[in-house]
Amino acid sequence: MALEGALVVLREEQREDQKLFAELRNDLDTQAWNLALPPSYTEEMHVKRFDAMEFSYERRSARLVIVHKETGALAGYISYTDLQPRLSASIGLVVAKPFWGTRVALDAQEVLLRFLFHELGLRVVHLWTHSGNPRAVGLAEKSGFRISARIREATYRNGRLLDTLVMSLTRDGYGERHAEFQDTLPDPTALLRP
């Protein structure tokens, strides 16, 4: 089963994708991190990182390339990290500017969430952003994420003190928004509730 949505396909990263990754990393608008990095990353650096990846059955993170189905163009990447199997992970999303406002980001996010909840059986998914990124907050809210932590003034970017935000989507919350999600994975707490 491909990781495919209405607008995008998510696939493994390849060496030729690294040029785009360097470009996204070097654009302060698309870094999407709480902490700005210098815009000095090269394609060669990314290729070295790519070449250093090793096969493992114990993956705790993954980065998937977002391919725009209609044009075949690379639209960015989406990732998960800090995987606690059968429990939780954090996701991250970087979309190239030409695809902003095209619903590509939302489609990619929904495809990854389907994988995390349907295939990996996670109970909650988190993401980190900051209060100066309303686009990211709004996108997360469209998939049902809610702010679970607002760490005051913990981010400094673009000359401003901002709040670091943690947003969370529980398995229940995901199921409420997806009627097609027939959850047969027992909740580990269900039979123990008084």
Partner: peptide, 9 residues
């Protein structure tokens, strides 16, 4: 400043 759900069991 936050309560992050389902950290564990």
């Amino acid at each position: 400043c936050g309560r992050i759900p389902r950290a564990g069991l």
